[in-house]
Nucleic acid binder design. Structure first.
Length: 265
DNA sequence: AATATTCGCAACCGCCAGAGA
DNA sequence: GTCTCTGGCGGTTGCGAATAT
């Protein structure tokens, strides 16, 4: 049996999307809406697989996406939500309008993780690194104690029941006599407590097929979410970054793309 | 100036769940 | 109930840019 690939991969293009491809995809979706992604590339005249088209749209081309780095409040929200939900990026993204799971995941892995470690917080447990180490050591010590007490008990039982024991007397154990404890009985899952959060997912963007009218009226800083007037420009986030830097490839490509989008209409 | 290394982001891959036949 | 297909998710990779040597 086995699953069929989402598309016939022979002759399909991979790698970065060109402006031409983006244009085709946007035009198609704006005219036809998001329907069957499998059919999109064929109908839109793209040599891509449907999955790739969907990802490109949801992560990059959607008109309601925010651009630029996450703000401090957004970052804080991500950290809080991660503490409750773990690596459920889509659930986290659902709480941050205009942000994608991929964007948040990348930001987490490249920025927030480091930041938390720098602050002495374990990004996995969200606990202070020092104290979690102490707890870990305590746990290990406890475990050791338990093992030692069990060993002691068995030794006592053993010594009491079979004095003068000799290893030569141990009967050989046959394979069928070995009893393996079931995994379910011995392993307890320690999933994070996610019950307290109920992602609303209220703003399903699937129906959003028009560029926001405000886009025509806003300036660059508004469109891109950049604060062009403030920031100390050192990139450390302490002075109102991100600041627009025409030589920053990432910002520049965003700008070019936004400008291009505007020219579409 | 040249080369090596690190960083950050976009895109891909494999798996899973749900829907429908 | 089984099988197939699609959309979605999270982890990983590739590659260009930035930085260090």
């Amino acid at each position: 049996m086995g699953r069929q690939p989402c598309c016939d991969k022979v002759g399909l293009k991979k790698g970065p999307w060109t402006a031409e491809e983006d244009k085709k995809l946007i035009n198609f979706i704006l005219n036809n809406g998001q329907c069957c992604w499998r059919a999109v590339p064929k109908l839109a005249g793209l040599l891509r697989c449907g999955k790739s088209c969907r990802l490109r749209w949801t992560n990059y081309l959607r008109p309601d996406l925010k651009r630029g780095l996450l703000s401090d409040s957004e970052e804080k929200m991500v950290i809080d939500l991660h503490a409750q939900l773990g690596n459920r990026w889509s659930k986290i993204a659902a709480q941050l309008p205009g942000r994608t799971d991929n964007e948040i995941k990348n930001h987490w892995n490249t920025h927030i993780k480091k930041k938390l470690r720098k602050m002495g917080i374990d990004p996995l447990t969200h606990r202070p690194i020092a104290s979690s180490r102490v707890e870990e050591e305590e746990e290990q010590a406890k475990l050791h104690e338990e093992i030692m007490s069990i060993t002691h008990e068995t030794d006592e039982i053993f010594n009491a029941s079979s004095p003068g024991f000799c290893t030569d007397e141990v009967p050989m154990i046959q394979p069928h006599e070995i009893i393996v404890p079931s995994a379910s009985a011995s392993v307890t899952s320690s999933s994070s407590s996610a019950s307290s959060v109920s992602p609303s997912c209220s703003s399903s963007n699937s129906s959003l097929m028009e560029w926001p009218e405000s886009m025509y009226l806003l300036g660059l800083d508004d469109i891109m979410g950049w604060d062009l007037s403030s920031g100390d420009g050192d990139g450390d986030g302490d002075g109102g970054e991100p600041k627009f830097d025409p030589f920053n490839q990432y910002q520049r490509s965003n700008f070019e793309q936004e400008a291009w989008k505007l020219e579409l209409f």
